[in-house]
């Protein structure tokens, strides 16, 4: 009963205080809702980032498997044999290690690019 009296008494407070905390006119209420939406959107950011990484990896693996897009770092195919090779420049007549590197890159052994570079690295280290 006492709390009801207080509730009714609060009902008679000055208009300026009621207007100040207005439900609809208060601009901060809209700001707050915007902020809440932003917060809830950011909650899914890590999930979205992980999904993007997985998707990128999957696409990359699919491309490597079926070779749909030509990767400039992939070994040159046998068709390149029909193209006349330019005369060797002095820069290309380098050390044996460099020559083996070029051969490895141009070979179409079907090994992955990573394996090629690993082999090249190992040869250079041995020499």
């Amino acid at each position: 009963m006492k709390s009801k009296q207080l509730l009714l008494a609060i009902g008679g407070i000055e208009d300026k205080y009621i207007e100040e905390a207005d439900l609809e006119l208060n601009v901060s209420s809209f700001k707050g809702k915007g902020k809440k939406l932003m917060l809830s959107a950011w909650r899914y950011a890590p999930v979205a980032a992980c999904a993007a990484i997985v998707l990128a990896a999957a696409i990359s693996a699919w491309q490597n498997e079926y070779g749909l897009l030509q990767n400039p770092m992939r070994p040159v195919s046998d068709n390149s044999a029909s193209i006349p090779k330019p005369a060797a420049t002095p820069a290309q007549n380098g050390t044996p290690a460099e020559n083996s590197t070029a051969a490895a890159v141009q070979s179409d052994s079907g090994e992955s690019q990573l394996a090629h570079f690993f082999n090249i690295g190992a040869k250079v280290y041995v020499q």
Binding site: L7, I10, G11, I13, Y17, I18, E20, A21, L23, N26
Partner: peptide, 12 residues
């Protein structure tokens, strides 16, 4: 003041 009014006048 706004918090008080919102709670005890508007019953939010």
């Amino acid at each position: 003041r706004k918090v008080f009014v919102r709670r005890y006048w508007y019953a939010s």
